[in-house]
């Protein structure tokens, strides 16, 4: 894992300030989307070997949830954005 995460609000900060939650590539389904969609959202994961978008919280900083695109083999961070701007999960 990279030692620094470039928070879009605070600049590069040590990763110890952040908390990881998990896959940011999943979208919360509509309430009536049905069992399969909800099961997939809550339980199934792409778990890629390579680039992976995930939610990190800048817990000891600005307290914004971020979407970090990171490589799960090299741990290189390719992009960081604010989760609210991502829109994909709404």
């Amino acid at each position: 894992m990279a030692s620094l995460i470039a928070c879009p609000h605070c600049g590069p900060r040590p990763k110890e300030e952040f908390t990881v939650r998990g896959d940011a590539g999943i979208t919360r389904p509509a309430p009536d989307a049905g069992e399969d969609a909800w099961h997939a959202y809550v339980y199934l994961r792409d778990n890629p070997r390579g680039r992976h978008k995930e939610h990190w919280h800048h817990t000891s900083g600005c307290r914004r949830w971020l979407v970090v695109e990171r490589d799960t083999m090299t741990h290189t961070i390719h992009a960081v954005s604010d989760a609210s701007a991502e829109g994909a999960t709404a």
Partner: peptide
Amino acid sequence: IDGYNSYAQRGNLA
């Protein structure tokens, strides 16, 4: 565990 998804057989110093 280190806490984030990883396929690399190595961890971090913290």
